[in-house]
Structures are given as structure tokens and as C-alpha cells.
Amino acid sequence: MNCGRARQLASLEVDEQLSAGDLVSLREHLAACSACSAFHHDVKVIRDGARALSSMPAPDDFLLGVNRKLVEARLVANPRRRAIFGPAIVARSWKLAVVAAAAAVLAMLATHTDRTAPADTAAASFMIETAASQDLTLTTASPLDDISIARLAGAVEMNNERTYPD
């Protein structure tokens, strides 16, 4: 076996892709050829190093950006336009009122922390979450507006977390 062939096999051996016969031939060559043995070692170090490279997480607003592109590409309807004449506007107004009311309750509780009861906070949170989930259920278009509604009510983080689990 020449060195060129041995190095091709060495690359396959790193991935455990060699037949038993080729594996024996390669081992014989590597035992006698320090240059190919070094190649085999280095390729394994590089492959292992590449496999362990750090992961770069996607930006926090990645999903939001995808949904925005879908609207821009007209692959999904723009919910703002639909809402003008569609029945969604009624539901949306109702939800907006609930979210605003719940946010007001939360704000009130926040200014009176000494009197905050866990049950009250949970109830207010439940109201926001219910409104958010209803919104998701009732509108099949982009959830971008769900975030707008929540932002109006100052509850963006909760809604964002619910709408876009990450």
C-alpha cells in the first residue's frame, strides 16, 4: 500500500468506515510509516476538535424574524389587515381588555408588595396567559400581533415566553 492510499484509508478509519481487510492493511502500513501514522493521529485530533466546537445560539428574536419574513413574503396573512373586517377584531378587543385589566392588577400589586397575595398574582398571570392562549387559538396568522397586544399591556415578557418557547 502506498502512502496516498494509506491516508485515504486513515481518513475513513477515523469514522470507523473501514472493512476488516482494509483495517488490517492500514494498521500494517501505519506501523511501518511514521509519516502516515502522524497523519492519522492529526486527522483524528482535528476531527475530534471539530466535533467539539462550541455552539453559537441563534439570536433571541430569530423566530420573530422568521414570522416577519413569512408576512413580508405573503406566505401568511397580515393579521392587522384581517382584523379590520374580520370577527377577530371583536375577540382581539375583548382580549386586549382582559390583558390590560390583568396588567393593571399586576401593576397595583407591584406597588403594594406588602399586601401581595400569591393567589392574586397567580390569578392575574392566569388572566394574561388565558388571553394570550385564546389569541393564539383564534388567530391562525402570524403571532406577531400577540406580542404587540402584550407589549401594550406591559406583559411582553410573559407573552413572548409563551408564544415563543425557546
Binding site: S55, M56, P143
Partner: peptide, 23 residues
């Protein structure tokens, strides 16, 4: 079902791997 949440789940499941690869 034209389920948007299912599509969002696909994005969430694979966004990091695709971003890593493309970057």
C-alpha cells in the same frame, strides 16, 4: 391543520443547528 405552532416548534427545534452551520 395549517398548525402555526407546529411550524414554530420546527423552527425552535432546529434554529441553533442551522444558525451554527450557516454562520
Amino acid at each position: 391543520g395549517d398548525d402555526r405552532q407546529a411550524f414554530d416548534d420546527i423552527v425552535v427545534r432546529y434554529k441553533d443547528r442551522i444558525v451554527n452551520y450557516v454562520r
